[in-house]
Computed example of a mutant assay.
Amino acid sequence: MLKHIVLVNLTADADDAYLAEVGAKIDALPEVIDQVVGVAYGSDIGLTSGSSDFAIIVDLDDVESYAAYAAHEAHVELAELIKKGVASRTVIDLKC
């Protein structure tokens, strides 16, 4: 299992409508990309100082699945949408 984790800090104009659009595209990933096993995402609940504003976790079976996911049009469109509301981004890929 591989977890692709994206942590973002949002721009001031990234409103609820923007986050709803991002969430809808994330929810659709398992339906349109066969390699996506599962997804989770959400806003930080504020327990730790200095945390990112929003996180996305995409579960994939292996590195080959990640390559297919990364190249898929649905992922590319999601990444472009995310860039519109992101001040900074950090990514980590974990093999579990």
Rank of each mutant, 00 (worst) to 15 (best):
A40D: 13
G50M: 06
V37M: 09
Y41R: 05
G38P: 01
L47V: 15
G23F: 03
S49L: 12
I33L: 08
A28Q: 10
L29G: 03
G46W: 02
S43M: 14
V32L: 11
L29C: 04
Q35P: 06
K25A: 13
I33M: 12
Q35W: 09
I45Y: 04
I26Y: 01
L29V: 11
G38K: 11
E21N: 13
K25H: 13
V32D: 09
Q35D: 14
A24H: 09
A40G: 12
Q35L: 10
V39K: 02
I33Y: 07
D44Y: 02
A28R: 15
V22R: 00
G23D: 04
G23M: 07
I45E: 00
Q35E: 15
Y41P: 00
G50T: 04
A24D: 11
V32H: 07
T48A: 13
V37K: 13
V32S: 08
D44S: 11
G23P: 01
D27L: 12
G38Y: 08
V37F: 04
A24K: 13
G23W: 05
L29N: 02
D44L: 02
I33Q: 03
P30S: 05
G38N: 12
Y41T: 02
D27T: 05
I45G: 01
D44M: 06
L29S: 00
S43F: 08
I26L: 08
S49T: 12
Q35S: 15
Y41Q: 03
I45F: 08
V22G: 00
G50P: 07
A28T: 06
V22P: 01
A24S: 14
D34I: 07
L47N: 08
A40C: 10
D27E: 15
Y41G: 02
D34F: 10
G46I: 00
I26V: 15
E31C: 13
I26M: 04
L29R: 05
L47T: 15
V39W: 06
A40H: 11
T48Y: 11
E31W: 13
E31D: 15
V22C: 06
Q35H: 10
E31Y: 12
T48V: 13
G50I: 05
E31K: 15
L29W: 04
A24W: 08
G46H: 00
V32E: 05
Q35I: 06
A40E: 12
P30D: 03
P30E: 03
I45V: 12
G42W: 07
L29M: 12
A28P: 05
I33E: 05
K25G: 01
E21Q: 14
P30H: 02
D34P: 08
V32N: 08
Y41D: 00
P30C: 04
P30V: 12
G50E: 07
G42A: 04
A28G: 08
V36P: 03
V36W: 01
I33N: 02
V39H: 00
L47Y: 12
G46Y: 03
K25R: 15
D34L: 11
